Simulated scan of single mutants.
Amino acid sequence: MTTGGLHALQSWLAHEADERDLELVCAEHPDLSRGEPDRTVVRLSTCIRETANHELVELLLVGARLVTVRLDGCAEPGAAADHVDPVVRVLRAAGIDRLSVEPGGPAEPVGPAAPQEGVAGARRAVLDAHRLPVPRRRLFGVAASVARDLPEPEDDAHTRLVHAIRALVPTATPELTELDSPSLRLTGRGCVACGVCVQACPPHALRLQHGSGGAGIAISTLLQTPAACTGCRSCIDLCPSDVLRSAGPWPWSELLVDREVGVTTLTTASCERCGASFPTTSGDRLCPTCTYRRSNPFGSALPPGFTMPGSTTPGAPSTAR
C-alpha cells in the first residue's frame, strides 16, 4: 500500500480557501476530462486500491466537502470497490455520506468529443495528485491565508484511520455498535501473566497491571485498548501458554473512545529467587522453575518418555559417573 500517496493532495486542500468536491480517478483511466462540472477531478498516480483508506477519510478533514471515487476507468473495479468499501460503510453507519464510490468497469478510450455513457458531458481540467497547481497570489503572499491541520505523518495507518473517523464522528450510533472493526476482542483463560503478549503487540494495545493483594500477593490484570488493536494476531500467535484467544471483532463504536478493558485477572506473586511474576493461589514464594531447582540442585529434567542409559524410569536423571 502506498504510504503518503495523497499527502500532496491533502496539503493542497489544506491551503485552499474554499472546500472542494473531489472526484478521484485511477491512473489508468483513458479519458476523465468529461464529467460533473462542479467536481475537482484528480488523477491518482496509481490504482485506487493501492491508496491507503485512512488518507481518503483524511481528505474530508482538510478541505474536501465530498469525495467521490470513480471506478468506470479502473482496470480492476471489483478489487478497488472492495478496498474502499469498509471505510464507506463505517462513515455511512455514522450517518456521514461524504465518501462514495461510483462503480463501473474498465473504460475504452473515447474520442475528444464523445462523452462516456452515464457521465455528464461537461469538460473540466484534470489535476495530477502529485503536481497540483499553486495560484500566483498565494506564491506572492497576497492570497487569503488558510491552513488546516494536516494528519500526523508518523502515526501508523490504523491510528490515523481511527483518529480521522473520530474527528468526523462525535458520538457512536446504533449502527456502529453492530459494525465489525479490525480490532479483536481477546480472552485469556489460563493466562500466567508472563507478559510475552504485551511485548509482542506492535501497536502496544496490551498492558499488564499488577495491584497489591497483600502479603506479597498481587492481583494481575491483562488489559487491552480496543482502539489501538490492529487485529494482527501477534499476541495470539506468540502466547507461550497458548491460552490467548479471539472472541471475535470489537464493534466500531468501541474504537471511538480511549479505554482499557480487562482480558483476564489472576493472582500472582513475585518469585523470591528470580523475581519473575507467576500465578499462585497457595501463597508460594518461588516460581515453579525455582521450586524445581531448589528441590533438585544437581538434577535436570529430561524430555517426557526419554530414558537415560542405566535408568528404568523415563525422564529420571542419570546417576552414572
Rank of each mutant, 00 (worst) to 15 (best):
E55N: 13
E55A: 12
L56N: 13
L56G: 12
V57S: 15
E58N: 10
E58Y: 14
L59C: 12
L60Q: 11
L61C: 08
V62I: 15
G63N: 15
G63Y: 15
A64R: 11
R65C: 06
T68E: 14
V69A: 13
V69D: 11
R70Q: 15
R70Y: 13
L71T: 12
D72C: 12
D72L: 09
G73C: 14
G73T: 14
C74Q: 08
E76G: 06
E76F: 05
E76P: 00
G78L: 10
G78E: 15
A80E: 02
A80C: 07
A81I: 01
A81Q: 13
D82A: 15
D82P: 02
H83Q: 12
V84R: 10
V84P: 00
D85A: 14
V88L: 05
V88F: 07
V88G: 05
V88M: 06
V90M: 02
V90K: 03
L91F: 02
L91K: 06
L91S: 05
R92Y: 03
R92A: 12
A93M: 05
A93I: 03
A93H: 04
A94R: 10
A94H: 08
D97S: 12
D97C: 07
D97G: 13
R98W: 04
L99I: 05
L99P: 05
S100V: 08
V101Y: 02
E102D: 09
P106E: 07
A107Y: 04
A107F: 03
A107T: 06
E108R: 02
E108P: 00
P109M: 05
P109L: 08
P109D: 07
V110I: 06
G111W: 03
A113V: 03
A113G: 01
E117C: 00
E117D: 08
E117H: 02
G118Y: 09
A120G: 10
R123S: 11
R124N: 04
A125M: 05
A125F: 00
V126D: 01
D128R: 02
A129E: 07
H130D: 12
H130K: 02
L132W: 05
P133Q: 04
V134K: 14
V134M: 13
P135W: 13
R136A: 13
R136K: 05
R136T: 13
R137I: 02
R137V: 07
R138F: 10
L139C: 11
L139M: 15
L139Y: 06
F140P: 00
G141Y: 07
V142L: 08
V142D: 01
V142I: 08
A143T: 00
V146D: 15
V146I: 15
A147F: 02
A147T: 10
L150E: 07
P151Y: 11
E152L: 09
E152A: 12
E152V: 09
P153C: 03
E154W: 06
D155Y: 00
D155M: 03
D156Y: 00
A157M: 01
A157H: 08
A157T: 04
H158L: 01
H158F: 05
H158C: 01
T159L: 08
L161Q: 08
A164V: 00
L168P: 07
L168C: 04
L168M: 01
V169K: 05
T171A: 15
T171V: 14
A172M: 11
T173P: 12
T173E: 09
P174C: 10
E175Q: 11
T177N: 11
T177V: 08
T177R: 15
E178W: 04
E178P: 01
E178D: 09
